[in-house]
Design a protein around this nucleic acid. Structure first.
Lengths: 220, 220
DNA sequence: TGCGATTTGTCCGTATGTATT
DNA sequence: TAATACATACGGACAAATCGC
């Protein structure tokens, strides 16, 4: 049963947090736009205090930016910000692979395949937005398998930023989202027994992703 | 002008955050202890809403743990938690050194020396608590020099956890805090031109720190 | 430059829901 | 089961800061 939809969010502020996060990563709100607390609270049907607690967590993730007494804005990432995100992501994912490497079981690898199949299916269906989600789920595999909760948590903090900007660029440039073949080597190496090759490929894989993303930023 | 003391904390909730954080890392509050909002808010002289916003941030850092509808507690780190913190810290600090390596100027290295001298001075003065702070400031050097704001931010999130547990163990076991010689090799390698040696030493340095910390946890 | 309008930061009183006894 | 204590959540209020004219 796929009730794996993380059964936390018992509290209202957590549900509002997810709502807001989805609003942002779905691209409903433009970078730089100001969030009016009173108005937004009424829209979401919650009190200002509850909304503020949710917003504060999004500020820490990096989706929002707060300027004291001035307001909270949708964060507008610069090229430097994106470069930093990608470099940290590379470092974290390499660490995840080092840890999960001896833990790769038959079931785990089947799981990896499922995530890739899911990604391919969404690409075929021209579901660009869904493909972005699937690609991130594919990359979550090594973090989850590592069993390193702090590492996973770091990735979970990074992930919304990536999703946000993938979506933005996909919307702005009408590009097709992830490529079909982009993860073939990734999957293949994840099955093999050469960790060094995997780590090296990761570096290149990330560098390619960053370069492609930066191109769209530049052509903007 | 050393007004670099990051002029944030304009708002009350930020000041409360720092207050609370210092209360915790100073060991005034025992792990597992429950924080009563009403009482704590009155003690600190702020409203519950403001206190909650500060507490939420400490939950994200990892110093506090929130159980919905049950309360917020001083986090009690397990051996696994400590191991995770150390392994992630190793990874981040290695990344910081890779980035800052070509940026080491004469001034930067002088700064590193100052931080080490400060650490030695506090050790000599038998100021165990201050020595802990100094040791963490010493390790902050590579993150700051790297200029990688996201990396620095990750370190800043990890740091309070280390400070908290160093303080706890120092209090519980009356140990003398950091050793005089423990960073000699660290400093020396940071001056040299062999990055690989530096990275390798880091791994060992961290492993030693973790082992020593875990010994105290076990002997508890 | 200044003044009014708007918004944030902060506080308080209260009601509801959950956990614990 | 009932009662209590507390966290969660709401709505209104106010001052201080900012923004717009």
């Amino acid at each position: 049963m796929p009730s794996s939809k993380s059964a936390q969010s018992d509290t209202l502020k957590d549900r509002v947090l997810l709502q807001l996060q989805q609003l942002i990563v779905a691209g409903q709100l433009v970078p730089g736009a100001k969030l009016l607390e009173t108005q937004l609270a009424e829209t979401l049907g919650v009190s200002r205090a509850t909304l503020r607690e949710a917003m504060n967590r999004l500020v820490e993730i990096g989706l929002l930016e707060n300027k004291p007494f001035r307001g909270t804005y949708i964060r507008d990432l610069s090229r430097v910000d994106l470069t930093e995100i990608y470099s940290l992501r590379t470092c974290l994912e390499q660490m995840a692979f080092k840890i999960c490497w001896p833990k790769r079981s038959r079931v785990a690898l089947a799981d990896l395949h499922m995530r890739n199949d899911d990604l391919l299916a969404r690409i075929s269906a021209n579901d660009a937005c869904g493909a972005i989600t699937s690609e991130l789920r594919l990359h979550s595999w090594c973090y989850e398998l590592s069993g390193h909760s702090l590492l996973l948590q770091s990735w979970e903090r990074l992930k919304p930023n990536l999703q946000f900007y993938f979506t933005l660029h996909q919307q702005a440039h009408g590009r097709e989202g992830p490529q079909r073949e982009s993860h073939n080597m990734y999957i293949e190496l994840a099955h093999g027994d050469n960790l060094e090759d995997m780590l090296e490929h990761l570096e290149m894989h990330m560098q390619q992703g960053l370069t492609r993303t930066l191109q769209f930023v530049d052509s903007q």
